[in-house]
């Protein structure tokens, strides 16, 4: 019985890793430039398709395909930024959020419908030969894919945090996210910083795309993923990379614990109720500082 409980918690943790990854890119873009890119879910969905086609046509392992997908998505992000979002940077903060929300909503519609037209809305998934493999100990069964997802979430968070705190660009991004004007005066090119942050934000959509493709996906998943990402970044606040990761894990575990007590029907409701209650107690998010 206890084994079954722990087993359910393990799946909660695995789901949590995905939630964290889904929130990461959105949090970065929102934190640095107040752009609310609701097309993030659509970009994740496109990454799933990229992973799917690489696997089916070229037999590339899904986890390895991240080496190709992430740089390509960075470029994609740069292009999208140049065409659609560059003109917003001169607006005050509130209007930046509003207009980026509208533009990215249009982008969400375009991307999910373009994919439907190109590849139909059929449900797809990537199933490598190790899809059902598990590591067993003490009667617990931990799937390979789940371990991969958790590892990916942790490694990507560490790399992103190192990039933001150790490199020149990373410091520029952090400075711009705290105070653009001061950053501009210190000689940081805010335009380039925005461009690169947006690129990284989109590149970060590539990773959860791979994890999602190992479960199952279709074009309309974009909306669900965006909603999930919104919940995660608010739970976690946008200030810290590890906060987002922790927020994701917390949400996944909260859902699993809810299943143990009330059953699977209200699984997501329990996660959300905890999330709203938590917000009321800590309105500044998991890692945010009290202002």
């Amino acid at each position: 019985m206890v084994t079954a409980y722990i087993q359910i918690l393990i799946y909660g943790l695995i789901n949590g890793a995905l939630y964290g990854l889904v929130g990461l890119g959105l949090a970065l873009v929102f934190g640095v430039m107040s752009y609310l890119n609701v097309a993030h879910g659509a970009l994740i969905m496109i990454a799933s398709y990229a992973c799917f086609w690489l696997f089916h046509l070229l037999k590339v392992d899904p986890f390895l395909s991240s080496l190709l997908i992430v740089p390509c998505f960075f470029l994609l992000g740069v292009i999208i930024y140049k065409i659609l979002f560059d003109s917003l940077k001169r607006f005050p903060e509130g209007q930046k959020t509003k207009n980026s929300l509208l533009i990215s909503f249009g982008l969400l519609l375009i991307l999910s419908n373009l994919v439907t037209i190109l590849w139909t809305a059929d449900e797809r998934a990537v199933t490598p030969h190790y899809a059902g493999f598990v590591i067993q100990f003490f009667g617990l069964r931990i799937p390979y894919i789940g371990i991969g997802a958790v590892l990916f979430a942790v490694v990507v968070s560490i790399l992103l945090d190192l990039f933001l705190s150790k490199t020149y660009f990373g410091k520029g991004i952090r400075a711009a996210s705290q105070d653009h004007e001061a950053a501009a005066m210190m000689g940081i090119n805010v335009g380039t910083t925005y461009l690169i942050s947006f690129g990284i934000g989109v590149a970060l959509a590539g990773i959860p795309g791979i994890i999602v493709s190992l479960s199952s996906f279709n074009p309309s998943l974009s909306f669900e993923l965006t909603n999930k990402a919104l919940v995660v970044i608010i739970l976690a606040g946008v200030g810290s990379v590890y906060g987002v990761l922790l927020g994701g894990f917390a949400l996944g575990l909260a859902e699993a614990i809810g299943v143990l007590f009330i059953g699977a029907t209200y699984r997501e409701v329990i996660g959300l109720v905890l999330f709203v209650l938590f917000l009321l107690l800590r309105p500044q998010g998991l890692m945010g500082k009290r202002s």
Binding site: A4, I8, V259, A264, T265, R267
Partner: peptide, 12 residues
């Protein structure tokens, strides 16, 4: 066992 229409984890 009951599950919600949006469920995505069936382990329990």
């Amino acid at each position: 066992q009951k599950y919600a229409t949006a469920a995505n984890d069936f382990s329990s």
